[in-house]
Structures are given as C-alpha cells and as structure tokens.
Design a protein around this nucleic acid. Structure first.
Lengths: 150, 150
DNA sequence: CTTGACCTTGCCATCGTGGCAACCTTTAGC
DNA sequence: GCTAAAGGTTGCCACGATGGCAAGGTCAAG
C-alpha cells in the first residue's frame, strides 16, 4: 500500500499545529537533546513520528516541556518532576500531595543552603585572616592541613 | 634473588609506622575506595606497596588525606584541592594565591546559595498559598504549568 | 587447612547535561 | 534534477564524586 503523497507528511504535520524537535526546543528553551532524554524517561507520553521518523510535538507536549523546565529551575529532581507531572495530569489529585512534595523539597533546599552557608562562613573567616601577599604563611592552608582536625 | 623473609614485609611495614588502606580509612574518615581514587588522581604521591601488593601509607599520607577531606567538606572541587595541595606543599607559595582561590570559591558558593534561596523563597510562597487538602486546586501546579511562563 | 576479614583490580551506576560520529531527510539554490 | 546546507535520527562517551559488586589474592586466627 503506497501513499499518494510520498514523504510529505512532515510538512503536513508542521502546517497543522505540530512542531519538530528544533521548533519545540526553541519554543520551550529545552535543548533537543534533553527533549529526547525526557522522552526516554517516559515524561512525554507517546511522541508521534512522521513517515520519515521525525518526532512531532503538539502544543500539549510543549506545555509539558515548559512544566519540566520550570520544575528544574525550582530545583526539583527528575523523579520529583515525574511525580509532579503525574499529579498535574490527574484531575483527581489532592493538593495536599503536591504540597507535601514541595515542602519536602524546601527542606532539602534549606539543608543544602545551610551547609553551603557554613562553608562560606568558615571560608570568609579564613580569607579575612589571610594577609594575602607574597609570603607563604596562610591561615587557610593551616586550617586545611591541621592534623587531627577532630 | 630470594628474600630470607618471604612475605613478612606487610607485617614489617605495619609495625614500623605504616598503615594499610583499612587503617588509613579509619584514621582519616576517607573510605578505602576514595583513597584509591585520590591516588588515581595523582593527589597522593607514589604510594608504596608491600611485597604482596598491599598499599601502605605513611603518617604524611594520612595528613594529605585529611587535607583532602577537609577541603571537600568546605566544598572545594577535586581540581581546587589539587591546586591547594600543590600550594600547601610548596614552601615558596604566595599566600595571595591561596586567598584568591578561596575567594573565588566563596563567590561560587554565594552564587549557588542565592540561586537556591530563590528557589526556596518561590516554593515557600507557593506552598503557603496551597490549601493542601483533598481538593485538586493547587497554586504550585498552576505555577509549574502556567503556559508561556515568560 | 579452613575460615573470615581484608586487600587487589575492574566494571557499572548514579544525575543531568553536553559533545561527537555516522547516517538519513528536508529544504533551498542553481 | 542535483547538490549543499541545515537539521533530524541513533548511539556512545564524558563529566564529578561516590557507591556497589564480582572475582581473585593475602593474611591472621583457630
């Protein structure tokens, strides 16, 4: 069974509201590479293909990609984003589940922030104590090299 | 040329101030795995071996391992630690080089902290606006799913 | 001599992303 | 219609720091 229009389907798709991966990348700010990656993670349901095997994306797919991008920019892991996407697409979700997930993420952020602030404060103190000239003496190295550390 | 004491060398080494990898790990809090890894990165100069191919570590090696561990706990990358170790072991170093390295690291920490605080603040706001009950409505998902985002 | 603890090397996995290679398809210019 | 450029396809390797596992060698105690 031969098609009357050999390989035109790509043009068809693009002119009827669909986008190829480059257009999707530009429209969402997600690189083509990562779009394929998210598909492989199962975050984009059943991506359609043209006759010539090009991926085509609907506006809904772009919406999902922006969702992922926004989730990443808020520091969510791919696993968390997967869960959030599931909730987003489930009209019978309970908002408390979303909030729990976000609250847990805030806790993780707070822990990391506190850890890094501790590093920064220690380093700031050490840098302040280092005269920083041509001489070798340096409290920073003394801290790092102090033996037992305990 | 045969040795008079066949494979005793390991015991010899351990009884003359040297440590095998397990002892070094326990003494420094660095896992045996990571000790080998740091060696492969060239951070531990020429690690000695016993006749039976066991690594043996001097007190100086343990000192280096503690230096690395402390550097990691301050958030330095392995590359930065490599540089710091070089300065530490160079008696003709200039303290300004050490301070520059540390100051740059503080800037990176500050940037990451600011980024994560931004995430946390946004999320805290969203979580505060989410009633978090059995209903599906949720400002968190609305933020993630808001189309153009812009 | 056996057993268990500990050492050796080497490979795979994580997580999110980038890069490259080899090859196929579409598009634009001539 | 041919050709070249642009852009799509898959697949593999890399990062950074760490963990895990497997297969084998070694050591110390019973």
């Amino acid at each position: 069974m031969r098609r009357s229009k050999p390989t035109l389907e790509t043009a068809e798709a693009l002119s009827s509201g669909y986008h190829n991966i480059g257009q999707a990348a530009e429209a969402t700010g997600v690189t083509a590479k990562m779009i394929r990656h998210y598909e492989s993670l199962g975050l984009l349901s059943r991506v359609e293909r043209t006759l010539s095997n090009y991926r085509i994306y609907s506006d809904r797919d772009l919406h999902v990609l922006r969702f992922i991008k926004r989730g990443r920019s808020l520091g969510f892991s791919m696993k968390e984003i997967e869960a959030l996407l599931g909730l987003w697409q489930n009209s019978r979700r309970k908002s408390i589940e979303v909030r729990r997930l976000a609250a847990r993420h805030i806790e993780e952020l707070d822990a990391k922030i506190a850890e890094m602030q501790g590093m920064r404060d220690t380093l700031t103190h050490l840098v302040g104590a280092c005269h920083g000239d041509h001489r070798p003496d340096c409290p920073i190295l003394e801290d790092l090299g102090r033996s037992p550390l305990v």
